[in-house]
Amino acid sequence: MNLFTLSFLILSFTFSLISADKALKPEQYPFSFSKPLGKIDKNSAQRGLQVYIEVCASCHGLKHVAYRSLEGLGYNKDQINRIAAQFQIDDLPNEEGEILKREAIYSDYFVEPYENYNAAKVANNGAYPPDLSLMVKARKDGANYIRSLLLGYTDAPVGFDVGEGYYNKYMAGNVIAMPQPLYGDDVEYKDGTNASLEQEVNDLVTFLTWTSMPDLEDRRSAGLKVIFFLFIMTIVFYLSYRKIWSELKK
């Protein structure tokens, strides 16, 4: 490690320490899944998918999620094929060796918004819009953090220089490269729910919690059974232990 990289590391380290202090702690919101046995609110997650497709998907990918897995949110195969068909994906090379586009189908993964990393960067002022598949797990207190962040755009305080970015009180350093994406009424919900800003954000966060943890409901319901079984087994072993050892005391 040469002197330059070392000083760069120290500088960026110090900067991140100073800036990390300025971010507010996320506001705690009671989502349907917040409690240990809570579930994903399917209607909310479906609305969140709509917000993702109509707003977020133009910049952010969801590369680890397959369309087929949307069955977990209550869609059937036909509905999923219709959702996927809104996106164009590279087909396999044809007989002439050309790669043509085709509509995405049930078995495809969510189509990436950009051809590659550099294309994504250059289209967004040099800031790569991160993939959202795991965003809830990739941030501390992820669901509350993303919710607070999306609701946390305000005008910068007087004298605060945001440079090329935007002011956000929940972002580390208070400067975020992403302009405010949601304002309310950005989508027209198919189920007639009023698309207020907070409603959109809650729905989106519910959807992204599901993309991060598609195992959440299976995990919790299996966990309940396993813990119940182990609890009973522990009692049985304890009583056997007492019974067997009581022979020693005689």
Binding site: G223, V226, I227, L230, F231, M233, T234, F237, Y238, S240, Y241, I244, W245
Partner: peptide, 15 residues
């Protein structure tokens, strides 16, 4: 039996 009891207890916390 004592180890089995301990194991069962530890597994409860683990799981």
């Amino acid at each position: 039996i004592k180890d089995l009891f301990g194991l069962s207890f530890a597994l409860t916390i683990f799981f």
